[in-house]
Design a protein around this nucleic acid. Structure first.
Length: 430
RNA sequence: GUGACCGUAGCUCAGUCGGUAGAGCUCAGGUUUGUGGAUCCUGCGGUCGCGGGUUCGAGCCCCGUCGGUCACCCCA
């Protein structure tokens, strides 16, 4: 008898048993409530997309190695969505003329990536996506997206000691590469990757990597100046593209009361090529979990893959795995209990009376679970207890004839005889 | 993709020097049919992840493989 199938979920995926599902649902509800308070509307889309929409802008590495893809029976190349941004862009482009601008949409899709599962990274995860398209003023749109990034952890009770939002602007780095370092464009990604590593490696190693990438001593010095001197460097070098908008963004954040949450971070680069301006990442401030929780940025050209009309866009994606770890580590969300009122036990020969009672109580607004079978009464109480019920309701023929039910409190052991109307007021006031 | 550690009952794990497999919890029963929880008793439950090798003999040693965890790599 050892031909049984495995009960384990597929590599890198999770089953959600009721308790875990309640946690996830509670987390998503707070996320949804927060973004809806800013006017974002919920959307969804198919799990699979034509492979092409990822080939256009997502990096080749992701397409070749990290996408679940297949050819369908009609010879179409199909991909399971690894991220939501191309899908959202496709949907906006589809109705680009008729959608009232600005467009504020969010979604919580499940996304798939074929990669080595590790801490905070699985093959399937859920990701809150928020995007703002077609803003009349991009500066204000950037501000709003950062506000959202702050308000989401805040909605769970986090404060600025728990997380920090680090912002940068892609155009600044690109402009430094082009104007100050005279780097050819194919060198940009390599140097950007070295900058991204700065915090993880020693300074000498950092400079050595830059040197072997072909940078002169003066170029390295300039990059050090850029990384170490924050906004002072920007103010000295306001001929660099993107500097005025970054300084104005920081000013706006301060005026809006977010200066404790958001900092300028010259080292923030981010991987995707489609970013055209603002980029940001949110970090856990706990020293044991100094990890990027989520991030996003401005991607003004992505819509152009689908439409001749263009539309500016800014947004972010937040994975449920890392964010749930953040919430647990900072004790910000407990698994909520079940929302159930009472368990109905039944007597042999009177099973259908119990079921009718359950139906009446449900129509009056109570959540009622019944025993399924008139087993020994003690067992039925035990069922209710094990399932976490505080109350058991009983109505045998004696009670039915007198128009009452027995209501038993399992934690105190008290039992009393009440009418169905009284029962409703007891639970409504509880 | 690279490396380290791990995989024994449904769950958490023990298993000495290589000598025929253990505990706790869970689950199912137990004082006769309208009242649960504690204790006690009994019972169910394992091809030791899978495949090969060494050996008289392997849960234990060796190789491979699959899965998990962690750290890198790549990076949402």
């Amino acid at each position: 008898m050892s031909n049984l199938l495995s009960t384990k979920p597929y590599k890198g995926t999770r089953d959600f048993f009721p308790e875990e599902m309640r946690f996830r649902t509670a987390m998503f509800e707070t996320l949804a409530k927060t973004v809806e308070s800013f006017g974002y509307e919920k959307i969804d889309a198919p799990l699979i997309e034509p492979l092409d929409i990822y080939l256009a802008k997502t990096s080749e590495e992701i397409v070749n190695q990290q996408i679940y893809s297949f050819v369908d029976r009609g010879e179409r190349k199909v991909a399971i969505r690894p991220e939501m941004t191309p899908t959202v862009s496709r949907m906006v482009a589809q109705k680009i003329r008729e959608l009232p601008k600005p467009v504020r949409w969010y979604s919580i899709p499940n996304l798939w990536r074929y990669e080595q599962p590790g801490k905070g990274r699985l093959r399937e995860h859920w990701q809150l996506n928020c995007d703002l398209f077609g803003a009349a003023n991009e500066q204000l749109a950037d501000l709003e997206i950062l506000q959202l990034a702050c308000e989401i952890p805040i909605a769970f009770g986090a404060n600025h000691n728990d997380f920090s939002v680090q912002v940068n602007n892609r155009r600044i780095l690109n402009s430094i590469f082009e104007k100050k370092l005279n780097l050819s464009e194919e060198k940009w990604p390599e140097v950007a990757r070295i900058l991204d590593k700065r915090l993880k490696i020693a300074e000498s190693e950092f400079e050595q990597m830059l040197a072997s990438a072909g940078l002169s001593a003066s170029s390295i010095e300039l990059l050090q100046d850029y990384l170490q001197n924050g906004t002072d460097f920007l103010q000295k070098n306001d001929d660099i593209d993107g500097v005025p908008e970054l300084l104005s963004l920081l000013h706006n954040l301060e005026k809006s009361g977010y200066q404790n949450f958001v900092q300028y971070a010259p080292g923030i680069v981010r991987g995707f090529d489609y970013y055209t301006g603002l980029v940001f990442e949110v970090f856990d401030q706990n020293p044991e979990n100094r990890r990027s929780l989520f991030g996003g940025g401005r991607y003004n050209n992505l819509i152009g893959n689908f439409s001749k009309d263009s539309l500016n866009a800014v947004g972010f994606g937040m994975g449920d795995v890392t964010f749930a770890e953040f919430l647990k580590l900072h004790d910000l969300l407990k698994t909520p209990p079940r929302q159930m009122h009472a368990y109905i036990a039944m007597f042999e020969g009177e099973e259908l009376n119990a079921i009718q009672l359950a139906t009446r109580l449900r129509k009056s607004g109570l959540n009622i679970e019944t025993s399924v079978g008139a087993i020994k009464l003690g067992k039925q109480f035990q069922e209710a207890e094990t399932k976490g019920y505080n109350f058991v309701i009983l109505q045998g023929s004696t009670e039915a004839n007198n128009n009452v039910v027995q209501l038993k409190n399992l934690s105190t052991g008290d039992q009393k005889s009440v009418s169905e109307a009284e029962l409703l007021t007891i639970f409504k006031n509880a």
